[in-house]
Design a protein around this nucleic acid. Structure first.
Length: 228
DNA sequence: AAAGCTTTCAACCGCGTGGGT
DNA sequence: AACCCACGCGGTTGAAAGCTT
């Protein structure tokens, strides 16, 4: 959050958005749609850059933005996707309905990176001492966080096998295709019966085989027996 | 209670890309 | 081919909130 201030040269406002500004942007977009981010602020009566308006809309005001804690499923998807794609936050976010690239990026830096780093460090330690079965408190906490029921893995995998859309592709070719993928993912989240962490492990391994993905071993191992 | 430290996350910035001219 | 412009992305910042001492 940044303190509201303004650029003395341009007269444009910077920093945190007020409720009034939010309402102005929402009402303008709901009435006229998004046609040109650069011109829009002027017509909407906002003293903001187009960039700022776009960011505010995309990350906060847009309908269906999901707020609150990330689920275990989302953790797993981010961890896996990051192992495959690296810091391609928008590509990772596209696999998580309602989450923005900024959300995913922040969550990675605040939570998951530590967990992965810790796991990597722990792996190196256990490589040198294979008889060491003790876990420190952080590692144990990480396990308990991940070792929760993971929903609908079978259904998700089945859909992957039958869908012509490559849901692990980072690119999209059009809005209608995007919508299709999103709808499919909502199905994945909203229906079916709970799975287990074993399902998730099995899922990623099957997917790796199926798509011939070259995964980093460390992330895959997060779901292995050794890790638990 | 308060000072200092850490974490969170909204927002900014610079740069790359693609489409139009 | 070269330039311009709009957009999107990833890295970074910094205020607010939360936590610890």
């Amino acid at each position: 959050m940044r303190t509201p201030n303004s650029d003395m040269n341009t007269g444009l406002k910077k920093g945190a958005w007020s409720h009034e500004e939010d309402q102005m942007l929402i009402s303008y977009i709901s009435r006229y749609g998004i046609w040109n981010w650069t011109q829009m602020p002027r017509f909407a009566g906002l003293s903001r850059t187009g960039k700022s308006c776009r960011l505010r809309w995309m990350n906060y005001l847009k309908p269906n933005i999901k707020r609150g804690n990330f689920s275990k499923e989302e953790d797993g998807i981010i961890l896996h996707s990051h192992s495959v794609l690296g810091n391609k936050w928008s590509a990772i976010a596209s696999k998580l309905p309602g989450r923005t690239d900024n959300d995913v990026k922040n969550y990675w830096h605040a939570h998951l990176k530590k967990r992965v780093n810790h796991y990597n460090m722990n792996s190196k330690t256990t490589e040198h001492n294979s008889t060491n079965t003790s876990l420190n408190s952080f590692h144990r906490d990480s396990i308990e966080e991940i070792k929760q029921p993971v929903n609908h893995i079978d259904k998700f995998f089945e859909s992957c096998l039958t869908s012509e859309d490559d849901i692990f592709s980072s690119s999209s070719t059009g809005a209608s295709e995007d919508q299709e993928v999103i709808d499919f993912r909502y199905d994945y989240y909203d229906t079916g019966s709970p799975g287990t962490v074993d399902d998730l492990q099995c899922f990623w391994q099957q997917l790796q085989t199926f798509e011939n993905l070259e995964l980093g071993n460390n992330h895959l191992n997060m779901f292995s027996d050794e890790f638990f």
